[in-house]
């Protein structure tokens, strides 16, 4: 970790000013990702603008029926907020499927959006990695890449976005509110994260100096038909191999509206709006779900066939979609199939 100065800002515009007035500065939220990256020398900011005192921790109802999540509300406070639990149980359960109680007590909603990939090569300075050092190459293309993506990848990068929360936010069609040197703006969630293309060093579409201030949830929370299915290498405290967040509006056995997103498979939470449309107006059935799953992974590309490599995610991802849609329609969910629940029927 390099040396840095630190300012504790007390207001949002002050924070933006502080950051833009220092070269090589970064915002410090809960620090659960940034401090980790700094200890590995992957991030080397010379100044930190600490956001801990900013008044962005509230969770408030919006006039249009939605809910605003303060960017500095912790993941734990968000998951356990009564309004989130009642109206957006998908989000609540998704947050609780990620990380650990200790991390969720500190990690912020804004920081969750901006966490960086867990690709082994990104995390190891001794290896080529285009995301960390543009132009150095991608070690994951051929090396062990179990953690890497199969959708929307490029020859420059096959890293995935590691968040669980963001998968639910994608399905819920959240809107990200940001404030920067040029004022405030909003970003649709699907536009917030980006695909690697030729510039994998860029994870998202934030402009320099911009700070996430809030995440707005639309009114529809799919509280009657939802699921978050997370598949991983152990029961808890592991990043997703594949995860699926589903929200449905049902009328009897007919799907009126469908939103779903995948984690663990792409550089961003993966939504396929054409696949969503295939579900809408249709009767829920295993065949339909299989067709949808096939559509989502039609263009997928695996990078190696053995268990150290990630081609298995294509088949696993399809099966996960089928299972998640089934769980959401029937509301018979096992939220975390990695965990054997004694109390489960």
């Amino acid at each position: 970790m390099n040396s840095f100065t630190l300012t504790q800002a007390t207001a949002t515009d002050e924070a933006v000013r502080d950051l833009t007035s220092h070269d090589g500065a970064a915002y410090l939220g809960g620090g659960t990702n940034l401090v980790d990256l700094m200890k590995y020398n992957l991030e080397r900011p010379t100044h930190l603008t600490s956001l801990g005192l900013l008044p962005l921790t509230d969770i408030t109802s919006l006039p249009d029926g939605g809910l605003r999540l303060g960017a500095l509300a912790t993941n734990a406070d968000t998951a356990w907020h009564p309004e989130v639990e009642k109206r957006y149980p998908l989000l609540s359960q998704t947050i609780l499927a990620g990380a650990t109680p200790q991390l969720r007590n500190v990690a912020t909603n804004g920081g969750n959006l901006n966490q960086r990939t867990r690709c082994y090569y990104f995390y190891d300075l001794a290896t080529p990695c285009n995301k960390r050092e543009p132009g150095s190459g991608c070690s994951a293309l051929t090396g062990p890449n179990r953690v890497c993506g199969v959708l929307g990848t490029s020859e420059s990068c096959i890293a995935t976005h590691p968040s669980d929360m963001c998968v639910a936010l994608a399905a819920l069609e959240a809107v990200v509110r940001v404030q920067g040197p040029d004022g405030e703006r909003t970003i649709k969630f699907e536009d917030y994260h980006r695909l690697p293309g030729d510039h994998p060093e860029k994870d998202n579409t934030l402009k320099p100096g911009e700070l996430v201030t809030a995440i707005d949830l639309p009114e529809e929370g799919y509280a009657d038909h939802f699921t978050y299915l997370k598949l991983r290498d152990r029961s808890s405290y592991a990043f997703a191999l594949v995860s699926v967040a589903v929200g449905l509006k049902m009328n009897g056995n007919t799907i009126e509206k469908a939103r779903f997103a995948l984690g663990g498979v792409a550089h961003k939470p993966w939504r396929d709006q054409e696949a969503e449309k295939m579900l809408e107006g249709q009767t829920a059935s295993p065949d339909l779900f299989r067709q949808v799953a096939a559509k989502v992974f039609a263009e997928a590309k695996g990078y190696g066939e053995d268990s150290l490599h990630n081609s298995f995610k294509i088949e696993l991802g399809k099966r996960a979609i089928v299972r998640a849609l089934k769980q959401a329609t029937e509301m018979s969910q096992v939220v975390n199939p990695n965990v054997f629940l004694n109390s489960n029927p």
Binding site: G143, S235, Y237
Partner: peptide, 15 residues
């Protein structure tokens, strides 16, 4: 390559 506790998996309590 998975030279850390996040990616070298050992059981947690839930396992």
């Amino acid at each position: 390559m998975n030279h850390n506790y996040a990616e070298y998996h050992i059981p947690v309590n839930a396992d």
